[in-house]
Amino acid sequence: MRIGVITFPGSLDDVDAARAVRLAGAEPVSLWHGDHDLKDVDAVVLPGGFSYGDYLRAGAIAARSPLMQDVVAAAHGGLPVLGICNGFQVLCEAGLLPGALTRNSHLHFRNRDQGLLVERADTAWTTAFQQGQRIVVPVKNGEGRYVAADADLDRLEGEGRVVVRYVDGNPNGSSRDIAGVTSADGRVVGLMPHPEHAVEDLTGPSTDGLGFFTSVLTAMVAA
């Protein structure tokens, strides 16, 4: 199993995402934003960071990079894509996921160990979890407040597209405590918290994050 990790200028958690892929038992493959080459990977991770320094809007410039055109096309064909933090912002800017991420309501960057409720355990990235399971993974962002029009939020909730929701405190003012959402087909998932930082007892608050990376292996076998 080969899982691509994209590096944009300003990507920071690409090494962490690659480690998480490796610990999950897959082969991490480095992908470069400027290439039109997905290197035949079976899934793609867009890591956290500050692509293009968050200039213009977080994720806006990266979403228009050459490789993202290939990612968007492949995603429409069912390629599993996970966007973490800045990666989530890129996916929203690229139109693969609904809504937008804006400045935290308290205006500070916030890094803490965050409780999450898994509401969808049947997407390509969450089958390792039980629906209703509570997990803890780090959250760290300055522009992580998920927003969308009320009608869109109602529709997302109605379609069951909220994947993870903040519990025990909302770290950034996200609408309806939404921490992550999925595409209609459940193959593309974006979330602000960082599962790649919760993959080892030595360095993370838990190993709950590993489930996102092992899930996609199962999804690929099933596909």
Binding site: D16, R19, H108, R112, K140, E196, H197, T203, G204
Partner: peptide
């Protein structure tokens, strides 16, 4: 000091013990 330290990323690179 959490008011301060929560404004800092302590996880990136995945080697913070």
């Amino acid at each position: 000091k959490s008011w301060v330290t929560e404004q800092y990323d302590r996880y990136v690179r995945g080697n913070t013990v």
